[in-house]
Structure formats: C-alpha cells, structure tokens
C-alpha cells in the first residue's frame, strides 16, 4: 500500500494529452490517409480527497478518454497523471484495488448467475477480508435495497436494479476513488433518486472521491458542488455551478403578469422574448439581480404577479460550445 499524504490531491492531472492516429478513407479512392486526432489536448486539474466532481461535455469531447487514462486502460501521450499517488498507466493492477468504476451502459455482473455470485467473485478477485466484505455488502444492501435481489439471476433484474447492483459491486473493496460514467442513464425517476441518495451517503460517510460523467444535469445539480466542462479535448470550465452560468452567458427569464395586455415592454438591462395575453417573458443576464428590473417595471405598469426562471444547464453548455 502506498501511503497517500492527505494533503496531496486524490487525482492530479497535469497537461495530459492523448493523441490517436486515425486512418481515414479518402473519398472516391482506395487510399487511406493517416492523420492525428487530439482526443485530449492538454488538460490539467486536481481533485482533493473526498470531493464529488461532475465531468461533462458533448459526445466525443474526450470524457471517456480521460476516464480511461485515469483508470490506466489508456496510456497518455503526454503530461502527468496521478491517482491516489499512483501512475495509472504504469501500475494499472495496483491502482485497480483502490478505485471503483461503473459504466452505465456496460454491466460487470454475471448475466446468468444470482447477484450474490458476482459479489463473491469481486470478494475473491480483490481479496477482501471477510469482516470488511460483510460490512460493505450489508451497507450496500441496506442503502440500495438489494436484499430481495441478491438471489435473483441478473438477467431477471430491471435496468434500475441492475445499475444499483453494479454500483454496489464497485464499492465492495472500499475504493478511495469512484468513477461513474452515466450512472443514471435509462433509469426511472425513483431509481435515479435512490442512486443519487446513495452516492451522497457514500461520499459523506466514507469520504470517497467521486468523478461523475453524465448527461443528466440534475445529477450534477444534486450531487456536485464543482463541475468541469470538456470540449474538443480541452477543459472549457472548472468551477462552481453558478459560475458556469456566467461563463456561458446564460440568461434568466423574468415572467411578468401585467394587469392588462400591453405592447412589448422595453426596460434597460432586459430583452423582450414573447407575450401571451397580459403575460410577458423578459430575458436578462443570469449574473444580474432581478430587483432593479422589477422596480423599473413596477414604476411604469401595474404588476399582478412575477416569477424568475433559472436557465437550463443544457442551454448554458450549448451556448458555451457555440461560443468556443
């Protein structure tokens, strides 16, 4: 075991690059042209022990390539990587004992065998001592409601049940870092909530560091205080959720119900979007306060009701990508 200094970050990524040689057919000929694709193009970040970070970006942005480098499956073309003090590409099998990975669309459970058998295999493969195994299994079973499922063949489980089973399998050996790739994809609302609650508990009680890739921004909103956005292999943003709105130049919407129908109103600092009877939608920068706007409006017209709508993060990111 490597003793990790608690001051040292759990994940340290420094100028990491991954370049792929791709052969592409030249249209209309039999010739194939070689060219390089920079899937990850100089990324740097650190994740301190116990943090829960969202890692988002469009398909093909370099998310899974990063995760694969962090697990040691892929070796980086350049830069420096450390996870729990270990160089993943040099010591993949040693690192494997200290990390847990869940791929949302790829189960590691044994299709024809009861859930319990898959856990037994994990116990033996990772050489988990009996008391620790019993303790971890009990905790997972309780928090993820796996009790009635343990003796059911995996092929008979629903998608949500299987995902819960997979998450438990990744945690039996007490990993210090947990990578989750789309852990809520395809799940119903209740299963999603269960998974999120569980992850929050694990993070809080065991101090497990979590890196979460997802398309469901509710996952990020409910779980992560920090989010990293990657596109075209580059880190576009690293910070809090609120800051993301500012960077994305996102807008909030003020919905105003006037006393009677009005022509589109004009107020400084806001933009008319649409009208529907006496109700009008006005957009303003997400970073600004709504108060001066409301004062200005109230000074001119009688107001019946007001509400402010937060921007959808999808739109924020779309804007960011549009800008990039």
């Amino acid at each position: 075991m490597t003793v990790t200094d608690s001051a040292e970050p759990m994940i340290a990524v420094d100028g990491v690059e991954k370049v792929f040689d791709v052969r592409r057919k030249v249209a209309g000929t039999l010739r194939r042209e070689r060219h390089q694709v920079r899937a990850v193009d100089g990324i740097s970040f650190t994740v301190p022990r116990g943090e829960m970070v969202g890692y988002i970006g469009p398909n093909g942005a370099g998310k899974s390539t990063t995760i694969k480098m962090l697990t040691g499956i892929l070796s980086p073309s350049g830069g420096r990587l450390r996870v729990a003090g270990i160089d993943p590409s040099r010591d993949r099998t040693r690192l494997a004992r200290r990390i847990g990975v869940v791929f949302g669309q790829r189960t590691t459970l044994w299709w024809d065998l009861p859930l319990r058998d898959s856990y037994e295999l994990v116990r033996r493969m990772y050489r988990i001592e009996d008391p620790r195994y019993a303790r971890n299994l009990d905790a997972c079973v309780e928090l993820l409601d796996l009790g009635p499922l343990l003796d059911v063949p995996v092929r008979q489980l629903s998608l949500g049940q299987r995902m819960r089973g997979d998450i438990a399998a990744a945690l039996l050996h007490d990993p210090e870092v947990l990578y989750l790739d789309e852990p809520t994809i395809g799940l119903d609302v209740i299963s999603k909530a269960k998974v999120r609650d569980f992850l929050r508990t694990v993070n809080a009680e065991r101090g497990t560091t979590v890196l979460l890739t997802t398309h469901d921004l509710t996952d990020i909103e409910t779980l992560c205080s920090r989010v990293m956005v990657i596109d075209h292999g580059r880190l576009m943003y690293d910070g809090g959720l609120d800051g993301l709105h500012a960077v994305g130049e996102s807008e909030r919407t003020l919905v105003v119900d006037f006393a009677h129908e009005l022509p589109p109103v004009e107020v400084p600092g806001a933009r008319w979007v649409r009208s529907e009877g006496p109700r009008q939608w006005l957009a303003f920068p997400a970073g600004d306060s709504a108060a001066p706007l409301v004062t200005a409006l109230a000074a001119r017209h009688p107001l019946v009701d007001l509400s402010v709508r937060e921007p959808a993060i999808e739109d924020v990111i779309a804007r960011m990508y549009g800008a990039a």
């Binding site: 697990t71 040691g72 499956i73 993949r92 099998t93 990390i99 791929f103 790829r106 493969m125």
Partner: peptide, 10 residues
C-alpha cells in the same frame, strides 16, 4: 468490454 477486464486487479 475488454475495458471492464482491464479494470480488475488481475
């Protein structure tokens, strides 16, 4: 699926 095999400590 080879990736899942590479994630195990064996």
């Amino acid at each position: 699926t080879l990736d899942t095999l590479m994630l195990r400590p064996v």
